[in-house]
């Protein structure tokens, strides 16, 4: 089984976001970057499928700068076979050019399955994976928390408001991973050493023109300072009173 996984380098979710001096981007100094957590589920699922099928290849693909090589190495250390970096100078604010670049790379690659994280935790567009599917005219299921693949077919479960959708599809297909799909492995030392020798192909590309341009970046409005209404259970009536008369939410 030949599986492609689209991944992205993102700031750690615990990182404090600071707007850079130019006001148009975040200040990356001192920020730890990680493999997007949802992409980690996608990589893990690909590895499990390969292991279950008893063979195949897992290829990780990303769009980014040279620094994204490190992110690819993380996926290789988990067990992916090779990586492709579609090298760009800057990431666009519109997900469409990224999806087009990935689709162009994956088209004709003979992949049975393309896995992606459901969204990147930085810009959270929840878009690229499903766009790649549309561009390649493949069936796709988004935000999947349970996946079964057998005999060229798949059954996926995705959470919706107040329920779980059960979706069937045929391969080749695109599936985007939600939390809950699996428990990603930590790269072992052996895997980290092996990753250094695995093929990583860097291809400089030019992205299509985006349809969105930067207008402004700002911190959300500060919440007004609140107050401690009291200590222990005795403070409950004062809280109820505040919620009823001041906040008017009860």
């Amino acid at each position: 089984m030949k599986i492609a996984v689209c991944i992205k380098r993102v700031p750690d979710t615990e990182a404090r976001v600071k707007i850079a001096a130019n006001g148009a981007a975040i200040d990356e100094s001192g920020v730890k970057f990680i493999l997007n957590p949802y992409d980690e589920f996608a990589v893990e699922e690909a590895l499990r499928l390969k292991e279950k099928m008893g063979g195949g290849e897992v290829v990780v693909v990303t769009v980014g700068g040279d620094v994204s090589q490190e992110t690819i190495r993380t996926a290789l250390a988990m067990g992916a076979d090779r990586g492709v970096l579609l090298k760009v100078d800057a990431m666009p604010l519109d997900p469409v050019p990224v999806a087009r670049a990935l689709a162009d790379e994956l088209r004709g690659g003979g992949f049975d399955l393309i896995l992606c994280g459901k969204q990147a935790v930085d810009d959270s567009s929840h878009a690229v994976g499903l766009m790649v599917a549309e561009l390649l005219e493949l069936p796709a299921v988004g935000a999947v928390a349970k996946l079964e693949i057998a005999d060229g077919k798949g059954v996926a479960e995705r959470e919706i408001e107040g329920g779980v959708e059960v979706v069937e599809f045929t391969l080749p297909a695109v599936v985007t991973a939600d939390k809950g799909l699996n428990e990603p492995r930590y790269p072992a030392l052996k895997g980290i050493m092996a990753a250094k020798k695995k093929p990583l192909d860097t291809k400089p590309i030019t992205l299509a023109a985006p349809g969105l341009e930067f207008a402004a970046l700002a911190y959300p409005p500060e919440r007004q300072a609140g107050r401690i209404v009291g200590e222990g259970a005795e403070a409950v009536p004062a809280l109820i009173e505040a919620l009823r008369t001041e906040a008017k939410v009860l």
């Binding site: 519109d94 997900p95 469409v96 999806a99 959270s124 567009s125 929840h126 878009a127 690229v128 994976g129 499903l130 766009m131 599917a133 549309e134 561009l135 796709a140 988004g142 935000a143 995705r158 959470e159 919706i160 408001e161 959708e165 985006p210 349809g211 969105l212």
Partner: peptide, 23 residues
């Protein structure tokens, strides 16, 4: 931008070859 909308919006943008602004 519900479970349905988050799934549908990128598919529409890809088909319409137009940008998407989510959420």
């Amino acid at each position: 931008a519900t479970a349905l909308g988050k799934d549908l919006a990128p598919r529409l943008a890809a088909r319409l070859v137009c940008p998407l602004a989510s959420d």
